[in-house]
Design a protein around this nucleic acid. Sequence first.
DNA 1: GATGAATGAGATTTCATTCAT
DNA 2: TATGAATGAAATCTCATTCAT
Lengths: 204, 204, 204, 204
Amino acid sequence: MSATAAPDRRRAILDAAVRVFARQGFHACRVSDIADEAGVAYGLVYHYFGSKDSVLDTLFLERWAVMLEMIAEIDATHASPRTKLEQIASFIIDSYDHDPDLMKVIIVEVTRAANSFGQTHLRQIEEAYRRIAAIVSRAQSDGIFKAEIDAEFAALTFYGAIEQVLTGWIFDLLPRGQEELARAKKLIVETICGGLEREARERV
Amino acid sequence: MSATAAPDRRRAILDAAVRVFARQGFHACRVSDIADEAGVAYGLVYHYFGSKDSVLDTLFLERWAVMLEMIAEIDATHASPRTKLEQIASFIIDSYDHDPDLMKVIIVEVTRAANSFGQTHLRQIEEAYRRIAAIVSRAQSDGIFKAEIDAEFAALTFYGAIEQVLTGWIFDLLPRGQEELARAKKLIVETICGGLEREARERV
Amino acid sequence: MSATAAPDRRRAILDAAVRVFARQGFHACRVSDIADEAGVAYGLVYHYFGSKDSVLDTLFLERWAVMLEMIAEIDATHASPRTKLEQIASFIIDSYDHDPDLMKVIIVEVTRAANSFGQTHLRQIEEAYRRIAAIVSRAQSDGIFKAEIDAEFAALTFYGAIEQVLTGWIFDLLPRGQEELARAKKLIVETICGGLEREARERV
Amino acid sequence: MSATAAPDRRRAILDAAVRVFARQGFHACRVSDIADEAGVAYGLVYHYFGSKDSVLDTLFLERWAVMLEMIAEIDATHASPRTKLEQIASFIIDSYDHDPDLMKVIIVEVTRAANSFGQTHLRQIEEAYRRIAAIVSRAQSDGIFKAEIDAEFAALTFYGAIEQVLTGWIFDLLPRGQEELARAKKLIVETICGGLEREARERV
DNA sequence: GATGAATGAGATTTCATTCAT
DNA sequence: TATGAATGAAATCTCATTCAT
């Protein structure tokens, strides 16, 4: 660590891009908006990144790598399947809590626009599903999860539920406070693992 | 009424737009692509629609109205909550089966980009959640669904699961045949209503 | 005169055009604006007039012919030169009083934009100057007007003064009431014929 | 300071615009015509000016500011009212002599189209009238000009006369040589100040 | 590394005009 | 006469990207 902290302009550009993309949307913003927000010259964006797309790519890839790594770590523990899923949901929701703009950009501009973004992103996203599916799959082998629901399918359902709840917060369709976030972690997993229905014997 | 129906150019433009949006994406396509696909002159798109956005708007609003109507009808029956949810899932999946391009456009370009599209769309989307939530809510009052999971929240989870599965098909992350579609209807509902976990007493 | 007055659509279009041109300007208005204002279908404008330009042409030519005729009539009388000029100024100002929109259109869109409009208009406008110049010229021969000011030149000055005053009213740079209009007739002529300066012998 | 002055592209665009506007008219020319004439890329026009309108605005405002300044300076001297008016007429005619294209653009496209151009321009134009009116007004207080002709009114008349003569040159309705220009300066003022009529005692 | 003027392809949109009915 | 859907050339403006300094 040096006394004169060199200003990391590259980082500044990425951070500024998050704010700008979140505020205006990827398509609606101009490269100059990013430069202005970062307080750097126009051309510097092109010094560090080859294109506007590349800025978004970098943002996504950086963050998604962390998520993949995290899922792997969680899966390596000896926790129960439900606990593992809860940890994954927790991680994603905490990510949103910590940097809502970044998560908004990733969900709204990348995950949901996989169209425009080449196969690279799709493969990354798929990898996350695969890792979640692996957890489900093992739980099925262990007789903890029902065998009749495809693991891949269950993974999509699980991730889709989380993403939709995040989308609800992002677009103000759902109240969003510390308490709600904490509750959401439990409820998503309770819904997906335990189901909405009360067990037959519980019913009045 | 004549045997040879007058060509409805407005309709032709809308139908062409679905194909073009699905193929190239809303942002990547030009208005001339739509006109070419529809076999009409450039300006006619602007004769019937004020702008490129407005074409997408119309497409979404048209289809979404059908969905809202359908949910209302389903809710008006005396079926069980699980059956109602299954009918909703069936309808959406059948919609995809019947016109995958249109559903792709609605999911990829509108639902997931609610950002760019004003509050109008958000309100429409919200209305669908609300209607699903109403079904859940009643099931809770009736003691069929667990009371501890907010109905709004459950609705989001349910819809998110369906949308993600559709996204899986759209982006070829999931096999997509008649059998898969039929299975998906059951499985999504089984996951959300019954949960992934086997009931305790079933476990070995 | 018939009991069922046939609606003169051609006239209606011309009258509507005056209002629309005055309100929005020739370039800023669309042919459909004229049709709407006239309460006729789009294509009818093209039935009666070959083009948008032609509508303006017709308006100008119609009115300008009246003015040329009027100048000729005035010149044919035995009134004094000053009286003749005063009658011309009166006629123009009365025209404005009677139909300010039409005069606005003629001054703002034609007279002052002679550029865009071919030589036809220029020749018409020139003819008016020539007729005024003839009056001045004769007054010079008769020893009533100073001989050292070219008649052509004096005509331009005279007409320019009137047009500028009209412009002042049109753009609200000058108060515009019945009294002002009446006063203007006198003052323009007094300025041009008598001059702004008091005669030497009158000065204190 | 280098011998080879850096090319001022912004200036080049403005100068090119004058030529193009004068030649083709503001509405009839395209932005690309300006860029071509200036020898710069299309987009540079938009880099320096927000719009085509803004190019014309800049041209007008630049020149008009010079004129307002000049009137103020002339009025600050102790010359006679007639001399002051003659200096103003001289300045305007010299401006035309020096850059006929620019004056054509200002007269034909702005002054005479005050319609399209917001109130900003109208206020500028009005200010010129006001300054001329102030000169007249003082001459009236001093007993040199007739009191019965409103100063505002006289200013309009005076300016209108000059503008119409310029228009005569612009549209080739009047011969235009060095001699004619010099004569015009005298004659306009002689007309407006001294009047067209010979004084009674001079008449035969 | 850093700057921002310069480039120009390409997009949306407008609207005068045509024409089948 | 009268209609207005249909046409498509042309215009403005945007903005990602390049590049000389």
